[in-house]
Each structure stands twice: as C-alpha cells, then as structure tokens.
Design a protein around this nucleic acid. Structure first.
Length: 313
DNA sequence: AAGTGTCAAGCATTA
DNA sequence: TAATGCTTGACACTT
C-alpha cells in the first residue's frame, strides 16, 4: 500500500501545479505540457500527438526527479500530458509501448519515494451540465485522466486524485447536485475512485458544506478544501471548521488541500479578489499538519522553495 | 528575435 | 442575441 493515511504519516507535503519555471527556463527546457492547436491536430494527427506525449512523459520524469532532489513530494500534473486525448484511445498512439514504459517509470518513482501526484481537469469539464453531450465529454475527460494514472500503475485512490469543480448552478442547485451525482455513478470504478471535488471561488457557486452534504456524504467523493476559495463561499463557517468538514469526506486517506493568498494583498491592490499572489506568507500550521497542501502561487515551484527555506529559520 | 492575436472544450454576465 | 471573461501558456503568424 503506497497511499499514506492520516493516522500513519503526519509528514507535511507541499506541492505546486503544472509548470516548473526553473526547469522551463533552462537552455534545454523541461516541460510536460506540450500542446497543439486544433488545426495542427487535424493536419498532423495521432503521430504528432504521440510524439508530444513521449516528450511530455520523458520530461515529467525529470521534473519529478528535480522535485525529489528539492524535497518537493507533491505535484499536480498538467492535463495536456497527452494532448487531444479526448479524440483517441491511448492504445491508438503509434508510440504506445514507449509511452507505457515512460509512464510506468514515472509511477515507480512516485511510489518508491512516497510522492503524491494529482490532476485537475480544466473548467470546461462540467460533470453537472444540463447538456448531455457536455456531460459525456466531461465523463470522458475524467476517464482519460484515470487511464494515465492506470498506465502509471498508481493506486485507484483519491490520494492520486482527479480534482474537479462543479463550477455552475444552472439556476437550480438541488437539480445540479443530483446531475453531478448521476455523472459520478457513470464513471468507471477506476475513475470514480480517484475523483475529488473542490469548493468554488464565487459566492453563488459551491461551498464546502454544500459539497460535503450533496456530494461527499451522498456518493463518497472527497472534498478538496481550498483555503482562498473559502473566503468567497464561507457560509459563516470558520476556516478550520470548513476544513474539518471537508476532511471528514476523505476516510482514511490524508486529505489534499489548496492554499493561496490574494494578489491584492501582496502584489497589486487593483487585482481581482480571486487572483493569486506570486508568493505566500501565512500558511496556517493547522492546515499543514492535517493535509498535503498544493500551493497555488504565481511563482509556482519557487514559492514552495521559499517556504522550505523559511522553515529552516 | 520579438511581439501579437488566438486558441477544443462551458458558463455566467454584459452589452 | 451576441460578445466577453475566466486562468494561463503556448502556438502560429507578423514584423
């Protein structure tokens, strides 16, 4: 069992999302988010998608190694790891055998070193949409993220989560929650076991207590507590209580949380309240002790490095 | 080489 | 009814 439970391991892990700016800015850039436009996909098709996937997975391994060297054991991978995967099955790629080996190599590194690895499909992954075709595409998106985790041979657990928002109300929250639960039930066991749901960043959308009641408790999808988002949807709940509610949906698995601070606090007084600052200064100790924290800051991995340096003093 | 407009996907808001 | 922003990186075309 490679998945850490809250009881057996209290080691805090801080992570960062997607792009590693240090490695991207090297003379030979390392990145795992190579993508292409529609016209290019139509022109060059599967062979080029396959080529980009090989390059992305090759670099992903190097990024994970760099993370390990820096003692950063939590990473959110981009959804363009295999570009245009909504249009084909992984096994259709000409380099499928290589891709499988590269994915397994990444998965082994993650498991061997107790790293945590997650995905966060983009905002158009709308599982609760009123449009059936949109739901079908959203289910498909969660499925191909799950395929990648299967290819890496990582456990089917929210520890290696695929995190989504509900992200809309469609004018009727009760009906929307019901549609979301319906979509969850359509997922394959491997995709469903990895799905997590995060509180939104607008007052009218989905708060932690709403998600816990409508999704966490009803269909067992763990709730990812986003500290900054909670300021927009607090429903009168203090941060610690909202986190405790979200944490109750994770069973024995150590919860994942998100932490960021407003740009208007540090960088730009005119920024939107939702905008993230470049660096963060006040991660609460209680959050750190009880969860693995994804630091969502403009400076990405540098923000985490800075926090680790601060720890040493 | 550097700068600019645009990009698969949904929704909510505004004009 | 149609355009726009969302978050952001990067493609693709221009200069």
């Amino acid at each position: 069992m490679s998945v850490r439970s809250r009881e057996t391991d209290e080691t805090t892990m801080l992570g960062y999302p997607c792009m590693n700016r240090t490695l991207r800015d090297r003379d030979i850039p390392l990145r795992c988010n190579r993508d292409m436009r529609k016209a290019t996909f139509e022109e060059r098709g599967l062979p080029y998608a396959s080529e980009l996937a090989v390059q992305n997975l090759t670099d992903l391994y190097q990024i994970l190694r760099w993370n390990l060297d820096e003692d950063i054991r939590f990473y959110r991978c981009t959804s363009t790891l295999v570009p245009w995967n909504s249009q084909f099955d992984l096994a259709d790629l000409p380099d499928y055998d290589d891709i499988e080996l590269l994915a397994q190599r990444c998965g082994r590194l993650i498991e061997r070193h107790d790293m945590r690895f997650t995905f966060h499909p983009d905002y158009w992954c709308k599982l609760a949409s009123t449009d059936d075709e949109t739901v079908r595409r959203a289910v498909d998106a969660v499925e191909y993220h799950a395929d990648w985790l299967d290819l890496m041979e990582l456990d089917r657990s929210p520890y290696y989560g695929i995190n989504v928002h509900i992200g809309a109300t469609y004018g009727d929250k009760t009906a929307t929650a019901e549609r979301f639960r319906g979509a969850v039930k359509r997922l394959s066991p491997g995709a469903r076991a990895r799905l997590t749901v995060e509180n939104d960043d607008e007052e009218s959308l989905w708060s932690v207590p709403e998600l816990v009641e409508e999704v966490g408790d009803e269909v067992g999808v763990p709730v990812v507590f986003d500290y900054h988002h909670h300021s927009f949807t607090d429903r009168g709940l203090p941060y610690r209580e909202a986190f405790a509610q979200a944490a109750s949906t994770w069973g024995d698995v150590r919860p994942a949380t998100h932490y960021s601070e407003p740009a208007r606090l540090h960088d730009d007084p005119d920024a939107k309240p939702q905008s993230h600052s470049e660096y963060v200064a006040d991660l609460p100790e209680w959050l750190r002790e009880q969860s693995d924290v994804m630091i969502e800051a403009g400076a990405k991995e540098r923000a985490v490095l800075e926090m680790q340096t601060a720890d040493e003093h």
